[in-house]
């Protein structure tokens, strides 16, 4: 890997040609970037599948991926989804604070790193577009996978359409306001 490790997300909007390292391209417009330098056999990834399974079970059992719960949320007819997201954020924030405060390392001894995000108008325009789709499908990307797992196979069409939407965004990215 000749990539220089740069922990600064590039400016969202303009993209000077051929300047970016793999990390810089990969970290564009995204929250989760893996920069672990460790090389493991593939089955080490199964631990993420295990976490995903717990997540998937909670998705179904708490009806978070239910189209009806999402409709209730956007009509202010139920506290359920606000409670789920609120509890998640509070616990997540306490965890992140503890990790930073005590400089907690990963189980492999690597430091845990956070990359500050820059503001872009994409968060306004894209956020609104995302919200429109969220209320229609009753699912953000995670629940799409869970709905398919619950046996609603027609949601595969929605998932493919979401991939297509991502691709079209990538195609027009340079011409969109950021």
């Amino acid at each position: 890997m000749s990539d220089k490790k740069v922990f600064q997300t590039p400016l969202a909007g303009d993209m000077p040609r051929e300047l970016y390292t793999d990390f810089e391209v990969r970290s564009l417009d995204t929250m989760c970037v893996n920069e672990s330098q460790l090389v493991h056999p593939w089955w080490y990834n199964l631990k993420y599948a295990a976490i995903g399974m717990v997540f998937g079970i909670a998705f179904i059992k708490a009806e978070i991926v239910s189209w009806f719960r999402i409709q209730e949320m956007f009509r202010l007819q139920s506290f359920h989804m606000y409670g789920v997201i609120g509890t998640g954020v509070v616990l997540g924030a306490i965890s992140v604070w503890l990790i930073k405060r005590f400089n907690i390392k990963t189980i492999y001894g690597e430091p845990i790193e956070f990359q500050p995000k820059r503001f872009s108008r994409g968060q306004i325009f894209g956020g609104t577009i995302f919200g429109l789709g969220w209320a229609m499908t009753g699912a953000c990307p995670g629940p799409l996978f869970a709905q398919i797992g619950s046996g609603a196979f027609v949601i595969l069409v929605t998932l493919l359409s979401a991939v297509a939407g991502t691709w079209v965004y990538g195609y027009y990215r340079d011409r969109l306001p950021h």
């Binding site: 995302f130 789709g133 990307p141």
Partner: peptide, 9 residues
């Protein structure tokens, strides 16, 4: 689905 994919990115 398209809006979800386009908007989230």
């Amino acid at each position: 689905g398209f809006l979800v994919g386009f908007g989230s990115r």
